[in-house]
Design a binder for these strands. Structure first.
Length: 234
DNA sequence: CTCGTCAAACCGATGG
DNA sequence: CCATCGGTTTGACGAG
């Protein structure tokens, strides 16, 4: 029985429901998934990881050592026990609490203090918990959106690269034609003529002379990109 | 308030 | 089946 207590004590101290332990350090330590005897009398085996949601901690001594708490208990963190030893106890919100918070967040991503307090009262949480939840939710929404934007920009970049390549090839072909036996002004059809700008050697479609073809294609694409993403200047 | 980070809780894969 | 591992999610905190 002393071994059991020693095990629990070392786990409590080592994994720190209290002390700050780095991931690497944590990996060296025994996993929390470990099965061990929680009752000093050795009557009850607890699989801490899988069964921690069950209300098995009947022993105050072990409960104190492990600092585990059943989710259905009041979720409000005990601040005295929370920060006095530097611990960062994490309490899982219930499905109902999460769902309500999500619903409110969809309507308003920020709340004023009074709204936070009202919501906290409604959900039996602390004002601080609601505040932190909204902070985290905003941060993670923003992060997701950034990832989406990044993915979109990547695709746009690929498209522009392809377009650039295509235009370069087209230009090469036109240059080849220019060098060949045909005259500078290529007769394409009765209605259209394609001309080559003498200064920059870019091809100009009719009525496009003032703008300047290729760069406009890029500029337009860039503008479209900015408009769709809402970027204020690339 | 945001941002970066920590760490508890959770979960799927894997091996004995 | 179960223990364990490695990755992910998410509640919490400190700095700015």
């Amino acid at each position: 029985m002393e071994d059991d207590e020693a095990c629990i004590t070392s786990l409590s101290l080592g994994l720190g429901m209290g002390s700050h332990v780095t991931k690497k350090e944590k990996q060296k330590l025994p996993s929390l998934d470990l099965t061990f005897q929680i009752c000093p009398k050795g009557e009850q085996t607890i699989h801490v990881d899988k069964q921690r949601q069950q209300h098995l901690l009947h022993d105050d001594k072990a409960k104190g050592l492990l600092c585990l708490k059943h989710p259905t208990e009041n979720n409000s963190p005990d601040s005295s026990n929370n920060s006095s030893n530097g611990s960062r106890k994490k309490l899982k919100l219930t499905k109902d609490q999460s769902a309500t918070l999500e619903d409110i967040f969809k309507l308003h991503s920020t709340l004023n203090p009074a709204q936070k307090q009202a919501l906290a009262d409604q959900l039996n949480l602390k004002h601080r918990q609601v505040e932190v939840w909204f902070q985290n939710r905003r941060a993670r929404t923003k992060l997701k959106q950034t990832e989406v934007d990044c993915e979109f920009l990547k695709k746009c970049c690929e498209k522009l690269t392809d377009e650039n390549l295509r235009l370069k090839k087209e230009l090469q072909e036109l240059r080849a034609q220019k060098i060949g036996p045909k005259p500078l002004y290529i007769q394409l059809s009765k209605a259209t003529t394609l001309s080559i700008c003498s200064s920059c050697e870019k091809e100009l479609k009719p009525n496009e002379g003032k703008k300047g073809g290729i760069s406009d294609v890029v500029r337009n694409s860039s503008q479209k990109l900015q408009n769709s993403v809402g970027v204020k200047g690339i």
